[in-house]
Design a protein around this nucleic acid. Structure first.
Lengths: 146, 146
DNA sequence: GCTGGCCTTGACGTCCGGGGCAAGGTCTAC
DNA sequence: GTAGACCTTGCCCCGGACGTCAAGGCCAGC
């Protein structure tokens, strides 16, 4: 199988395969004319890489899985190094989730506060003499995000 | 106030301030010798930018807040455009959280499965004739992540 | 006058996962 | 023999938010 076919079968591009090879992941044999030659096993390796990439793993993080398959194991995650990557990724995801959740809550709070303040001002402007036409908010202290 | 002092007071670097200026955010007046000249108001703008950046807002997303302050409003989020940014950021964060959570669960499931399989194999290897010393797993079919 | 510290602009490097193009080699079909 | 599809290497490009020089200007203190 040549590079184009492998790329098509894995749903990726030839450029990507050459990039993986340049990174030392997914090396290719060469046929007589210099073309890269792949087999079904390479397709397996490639699918493993793509699956992990889709999960957000970095290329380097897929390496243990690829090496595990290359070593003849039936699954890329049959080796301890792969499990370690799973674990550290899990920790990373948890940390990321926690931080994002915290940011989300703070942004939501800011939005709510700012919306309330605008409503407040709209009411204040509608009350006394005449409603000031647009945005004359100089009397209000805004609690500043600091 | 010159660039170094502003950077120090905002806890950032001169490079960053020049970058912001190059992006049209936080423009600077110039004193006679060509040095950038800033005042307390610029410090407020800069703090607004940094706060949002710390929340993960892109530079462009901070622009409405900065313009709001520049327009004389007491808070950067007193303007509708800023509220819109809050809202779209919130939606973005929620989508991101959802996806990350899904990935997290899938990775956790993979990890659990792979650990179980290893335990299975360890028991199988310990039972029959003699325990094979290391990693001879060629008889087991691993359900592949596909 | 000289050193040291601050400032200026400009240009290139970083990280990541490739995209895109050029110039040329190779194979197949007609 | 020649068109067209495929392959090769090599090189520069992207984005985002800066870091890191390099070469030179300005100013204060001694």
């Amino acid at each position: 199988m040549r590079i184009g076919e492998l790329a098509a079968r894995a749903g990726t591009t030839t450029r990507t395969l050459r990039y993986y090879e340049s990174r030392g992941l997914l090396p290719a044999r060469r046929s007589g004319n210099g073309y890269r030659a792949y087999d079904e096993e390479d397709l397996r390796l490639l699918r493993q890489i793509r699956t992990l990439q889709d999960f957000g793993f970095g290329l380097e993080e897929t390496r243990p899985f690829v090496e595990c398959l290359q070593a003849g194991h039936p699954a890329g995650d049959a080796c301890p190094a792969s499990l370690e990557v799973y674990r550290s990724k899990l920790a990373e995801l948890d940390a990321c989730l926690e931080q994002l959740q915290s940011v989300r809550d703070q942004v939501a709070a800011q939005l709510e506060r700012a919306e309330l303040e605008r409503a407040e001002l709209a009411r204040a402007a509608a009350r006394p003499g005449g409603p000031a036409p647009q945005c004359e908010l100089s009397t209000v202290r805004g609690p500043q995000t600091s």
